[in-house]
């Protein structure tokens, strides 16, 4: 800070940090190792989701690699003397010695040999679909579900919470009682009963989850924060200076509850993905492919008892769920402290 001399740069920096609480949150993310680790995992999954359609259009033939309808008959391997490839097939690099010897005898070229080794890097499932393709394809669905739920939840929570804090009166009473009720609502049993009576797909699920959590606990938390902001003198000053109610809510209340909303958005993603995985694990959702469904396929086809031998049927999907949930949870947890310290400052 140049020994306290106020340079142009430093005033700019000061101004910036005090202007937007969200910017402070971002700075904290950049400084925290756990948060960066979480972001790294999310980027990795994002990369998977993006590259899957590309692969499907270039190197992966849809008939073999489609995550829902694909099937590999392994007929091209018979010529190489590999007859023991049956579904669920282990990762194709299990047969690397055979491929290499075929290459040495000149039966196949080096490129073909490598292509055979990388044919099913994570094996196939009991009905002959490629696990890696399913894994990557599901990532997109999980992103859509998680983000959609989080956006619905947080928009409802932020708007209702700030409105309840600012307008008080019957608006406040009504939404707080509603939040009480929804906080107690048994979510997973409700979704199970619902799935028995209607077709639950990802969008439906995201809307139901978003409404249940958006009008629930998040409203209460955000209202408390908005009330703290409202009690500050500058809010009153803005009103006295002739700012309309909407202006005050938009310019003063919402920016200051935004970090808190963002924090709960992260936790909502974790919860939504967990719920989706649990429901599709029981086979209750109408989704083409998801991580929970992959494990469901395994248990429904009777591979549970020999799960260590058929590790590729559950380990990649289980790890993906855990890592994806952990990524959002880690960012959220590392942000919790900075947001709560902001909360105390108001």
């Amino acid at each position: 800070m140049n020994r306290g001399r106020i340079t142009r740069k430093s005033t700019k920096k000061l101004h910036r940090t005090s202007a937007s609480p969200m910017r402070e949150v971002w700075q904290h993310i950049r400084a925290s190792k756990t948060a960066l680790f979480g972001i790294g995992i999310i980027l990795l999954f994002g990369f998977c989701a993006l590259i899957h359609p590309l692969l499907m259009h270039t190197v992966w033939h849809p008939r073999l690699y489609d995550p829902v309808t694909g099937y590999d008959s392994f007929s091209s391997w018979y010529a190489l003397g590999i007859y023991d490839a049956v579904h669920p097939a282990p990762p194709s690099w299990y047969w690397t010695p055979q491929f290499l010897s075929s290459w040495r005898t000149g039966q196949i070229s080096l490129g073909e040999c490598l292509a055979h080794i990388a044919r099913h890097p994570l094996g196939t499932d009991p009905i002959g679909r490629d696990i890696l393709s399913q894994l990557m394809y599901s990532t997109r669905a999980e992103f859509i579900l998680g983000l959609l739920t989080a956006i619905i939840t947080v928009s409802i929570g932020t708007i209702v919470g700030t409105a309840a804090a600012y307008y008080a009166g019957w608006v406040d009473t009504f939404f707080m009682r509603l939040a009480d009720l929804l906080m107690l609502f048994p979510g997973i049993p409700f979704l199970i009963v619902l799935s028995a009576m209607m077709d639950l797909n990802l969008v439906n699920l995201a809307i139901v989850l978003g409404i249940l959590s958006g009008f629930g606990s998040i409203t209460i938390i955000i209202k408390a924060q908005a009330l703290a902001v409202k009690s500050h003198a500058y809010v009153e000053a803005a009103r006295l200076a002739g700012g309309s109610r909407l202006w005050v809510v938009r310019k003063h209340l919402i920016p200051h509850v935004l970090p808190l909303s963002f924090l709960y958005m992260l936790f909502t993603v974790t919860a939504a993905i967990g719920t989706e995985a649990t429901l599709s694990f029981f086979g209750l959702l109408n989704v083409g492919c998801s991580w929970g469904l992959m494990i469901h396929t395994m248990s429904a086809s009777g591979y549970l008892a020999s799960s260590i031998r058929y590790w590729w049927l559950w380990l990649p999907a289980g790890l993906a769920i855990t890592l994806f949930c952990a990524a959002f949870y880690l960012i959220g947890r590392s942000l919790e402290q900075v947001v709560h310290s902001q909360r105390q400052e108001g």
Binding site: T270, A277, T278, I295, G318, I321, T322, A326, Y329
Partner: peptide, 10 residues
Amino acid sequence: ISLITAFYPL
């Protein structure tokens, strides 16, 4: 943290 984020059925 791993206990919280682990996929419980698994």
